[in-house]
Write a protein that binds this DNA or RNA. Structure first.
Lengths: 241, 241
DNA sequence: ATGTGGTAAGTAAGTGCTTACTTTTAATCA
DNA sequence: TGATTAAAAGTAAGCACTTACTTACCACAT
């Protein structure tokens, strides 16, 4: 009975998004949130009208206010949808093996690639983040917390751990993480916002991840650590003398 | 006559911003642009109303439309004011000595510090840049061109030059510059936008510039180059063996 | 008296949000 | 099974207010 209902609703939802028939409440609600997400990311909160959202969702404006008391509430509802998909809390699990091995290159490269791909696949994400920051929405705090802060914390603790093990140079771990995040974010901004048209002519995510990791690792690997990269470098240097 | 006029106008401008007396046309125009710049940076183009600008400038809304045909035109007028102050075209001159010496550390550190300070002093700059990018204003193209692209070009050509001299590792110069710009931009974004409240508890611009430069240089210095840092690193490594 | 800097009071076209009303759906019960 | 019914999904039209932009008129220094 319960299951039947859900199946029917799901079917209706699939039809509804195209044909704009009548939908079960929750499906319609979901659809509205998704439409709103797209529009808010394109034009910001202030720049998007409830009328536009309604038209894009294929319903009258009034039903938006049946599902959400205010425009703000609709905006806030985005977070529940978005934070699940974009959540980085599984980070430490995703890269657990690399972390365990202490394979710095693999760790940083995976992190970079994951972020770059995430920013590329979810076109709305960066725009929503920036708009909410600029418009001073409380939403931003949670966006930042759940998607950036966690990454920063992960990187910081990882760097600190590896420093203790003598593998990384003694530098402020926060700044190391911030530098790396900065490289990645900047690359994403250029590809997905600032210079969108020439994305394909540019550097692939894989290459960017590799090169950024190289810069960071060359820049932070402890000279006393038995890392392959350091060994190689030292050998070269010694030979040159 | 010409000079007298300008002095009088300047006086009027200073009074006018406070007392809202009658101003010479050009002064009023300037004042409006400055007020608009602040408001546009705070709330974006769409989020700022001409009424607000008028009230903040201490005049009626109509006189804004006497000076500027449309709101867009007022927005565009910001560029003339802004691009002069924020222009980075003098970059190569500013750091000419360091460039000539081939003092990579000094070059990158100066660039970083200059950018960080610029972003801190000119609070409107980053916000205007991001808003114009998100809102898809043509303005953004010029903003980007004059303030970021030039820096990127400078860094790229500098890196390429130094690579030819054998001082820097063989890496895509574009990516090296992008990585560095990314670190700096990210730091500025955190300090001036994302986490504004705790700016003072954070890292100073000087320190950030130093550390970022360290990461980049360690990460890009050619192992065959007779750089002080490399020497030091190699000595340490050799000793450890 | 004339051009310039200025205003008060508009305009039509939105803005978020509400009201008063109609249709569809799904459970209930004769 | 099929009619009944209450809730939920939907709409058209309009609310008070705001938007960018205009018009018609004024004060005053030269």
């Amino acid at each position: 009975m319960r299951k039947q209902e859900e199946v029917i609703n799901a079917e209706r939802a699939m039809v509804g998004t195209n044909v704009a028939g009548r939908m079960a409440g929750e499906d319609r609600r979901n659809q509205i949130v998704h439409v709103a997400m797209r529009l808010f990311s394109e034009r910001g909160f202030r720049g998007t009208t409830t009328k536009e959202i309604a038209r894009a969702a294929g319903v009258s404006e009034a039903i938006i206010f049946r599902h959400f008391a205010t425009k703000e509430e609709l905006y806030a509802a985005i977070l529940d949808t978005k934070s699940c998909a974009g959540n980085m809390s599984q980070l430490s699990e995703m890269f657990a093996e690399a972390v365990k091995r202490g394979d710095d290159r693999a760790v940083f490269e995976s992190v970079a690639l994951t972020m770059l791909q995430h920013h590329e696949e979810d076109e709305d994400f960066l725009r929503l983040l920036l708009y909410s920051a600029l418009e001073g929405h409380e939403l931003f705090q949670m966006f930042w917390q759940r998607n950036v802060r966690e990454l920063a914390d992960f990187l910081r603790s990882y760097v600190r751990e590896r420093q203790k093990a003598g593998a990384l140079r003694e530098m402020e771990p926060r700044l190391v993480g911030r530098a790396f995040t900065g490289m990645i974010l900047h690359q994403s901004l250029i590809n997905n916002l600032f210079d969108k048209s020439r994305t394909l002519l540019d550097i692939t995510n894989e290459r960017a991840a590799r090169e950024f990791t190289k810069i960071l690792l060359y820049g932070t690997v402890s000279s006393s650590a038995p890392e392959a990269e350091v060994k190689k470098r030292n050998e070269t240097a010694t030979r040159k003398r």
